[in-house]
Design a protein around this nucleic acid. Structure first.
Lengths: 172, 172
DNA sequence: GTCTATAGTGCGATAGAC
DNA sequence: GTCTATCGCACTATAGAC
């Protein structure tokens, strides 16, 4: 889990490229070129492309986890989620929608724990199916809206403010 | 725009595979195998992979366009959008989030027209930046929520009902 | 930690027969 | 409309020197 400096560079470059071209559309050559090194140097850090995908996805999940676990109120959580999404609007956001990444998360224990804690903080004791749809919709709305062509030119702060207001409306 | 029967088969198979593996993660061999033919037979219908991506994306946009243009009230539009998303929850939904597809749509004239009409019907004369964020968030929420791991086991009708209620709450 | 060099595979795409 | 066969290339991944 603790990344070396070189591993961190690989994951950062990979995350940006995954967002721009998709996971399947990103080659190790592209990652190496982005870093100004050869493919072999990248392979020295991760022994396969799958490992890089996993590391990049895990790094994003860890960020979300930090937000969820450091929040003590619903308002804090919503603000943290919006901040995270806005910060990654050009990079991480799209990657988390990639079919390959989604499939690897769907049954991941940590992912489910984070989502469970999120639902508990947002909706309390409500365990109905409606509550699940509501959490799913909130997550999708926040992470999806930041990448929509319609808002691509909005400054971060404007986007943040509007998203937060709407997120509150959705969950109230 | 009018597809032959063979072209329709190619686009249908491609859409399913794009949703499962991403655009970049889907090869022409996979599409050919899905159809039980050879790559050359697929190439006879479309002269490049890009053309297939474009045709699949256009078909989805055309569906959305039909919904938007046949709706006369806000409620009709929301219901149509939810129905479309639920119908394609296993196929089209994910494809429309692919970076390659999104990039091709961002400056597409028809796409922008559809989005414009959508905003007009949802929010009337409100042309503020907030209104744009609201439309972006609504689209993202509906199309993203149907694919979230949390709701993957919900029956279509339950998902439809919950989504519609929440969509109304977001736009009211 | 990075390099050169290379193996082996699958890719997108084309030619031409049926 | 589908086939067989093939081209040239880019891909993932590895070996071994520095």
């Amino acid at each position: 889990m603790a990344l070396t400096a070189a591993q961190h560079r690989v994951v950062t470059a990979a995350t940006q490229l995954f967002a721009r071209h998709g996971v399947g559309g990103t080659s190790l050559q592209m990652i190496a070129d982005e870093l100004g090194v050869t493919k072999a140097a990248v392979y020295h850090q991760y022994k396969s492309k799958d490992d890089i995908v996993l590391a990049a996805a895990s790094a994003e999940l860890a960020r979300l986890r930090t937000v969820v676990e450091s929040a003590t109120t619903r308002d804090e959580l919503l603000a943290g989620m919006v901040d995270l999404a806005v910060a990654g609007r050009r990079t991480a956001g799209r990657m988390l929608n990639d079919p390959v990444v989604v499939a690897s998360f769907a049954h991941d224990k940590k992912f489910r724990e984070v989502m469970h804690k999120m639902r508990a903080l947002l909706l309390g004791d409500d365990h109905s199916r409606g509550a699940q749809v509501r959490v799913a919709m909130l997550v999708a709305a926040i992470s999806g809206a930041v990448m929509h062509p319609f808002v691509i030119d909005l400054p971060d702060e404007t986007l943040r403010r509007e998203l937060l207001a709407l997120a509150n409306r959705l969950i109230d």
